[in-house]
Amino acid sequence: MIRSETRDHVRSISLCRGEKRNALQPAMLDSLLHELRVAASDPAARVVLLLGEGEVFCSGFDMKLVHNDAAALPALLASLSACVRVMRRAPQPVVIAAHGGAIAGGCALLSGGDMVVTDEHAKLGYPVLRLGISPAVNAAGLIAHVGAGIARERMLDTSAITGRDALRVGLAHRCVATPADVLPEALRIAAELAAKPPHALAATKALLASIDRVDADEPFDHGLAVSMSLVGSDQQRERVAALWATPTPTKPAP
């Protein structure tokens, strides 16, 4: 469900579960983590490009699996946190092609991107508080990505924002007209970055990581622990189960 290839010094890593809106399963997220680690330590990969096949970049964790398998959510949270850390600390720039939508865990992945490309009508956000899940797991990554004020706003407001608004708040750095324009723009940016001296890019990324503290594990670990602390709570189990409950017609109050 993850494919990796290198062309002209650009290592493209694709989420290949387009028929399920690239919903993340533990094994899939582990392969992504593996490919990101391999790329980060490979000098032949001058740029990492993360993209998703199908209609949207990534719709987040596979909630059906979270509902059916109690071990899925903790595994997904731990791998998600690791993916964002690897991307933020990778020596080469990470470009993300976030077409169509990036929701919940999919939106969290964007915090690993140095250059995030989206389209005007894409939907991006963290609706997970409604499910009794805390987006805390990526708080450190999101604060480094968009600043503390916008991170607070996006984590506590469960409504999605458009690609255009994502550009305004800094969640995305380029916004093109349609989903089909996203990958060509991301490839163009990746090619430009691949032509720049890698040692200068690596030194600059390392400096920025030390300034925004993403080189430290403590804030990431703290957020991961907060999200983990809610796993299996009554509120979470009830709300996740309700996603598949048969809707019953509500009676008007007497």
């Binding site: 997970v128 508080l129 409604r130 499910l131 009794g132 899940i133 805390s134 987006p135 805390a136 708080a139 450190a140 604060i143 503390a148 991170a151 607070r152 984590m155 506590l156 469960t158 804030p219 703290h222 957020g223 907060v226 999200s227 602390s229 809610l230 709570s233 509120q235 979470q236 709300r239």
Partner: peptide
């Protein structure tokens, strides 16, 4: 939104920022 998730998230944000 779920009350316990709100509480946990706010407390973390206040600590981190």
């Amino acid at each position: 939104s779920a009350p316990n998730a709100i509480r946990a998230t706010k407390s973390l944000l206040n600590t981190l920022d």
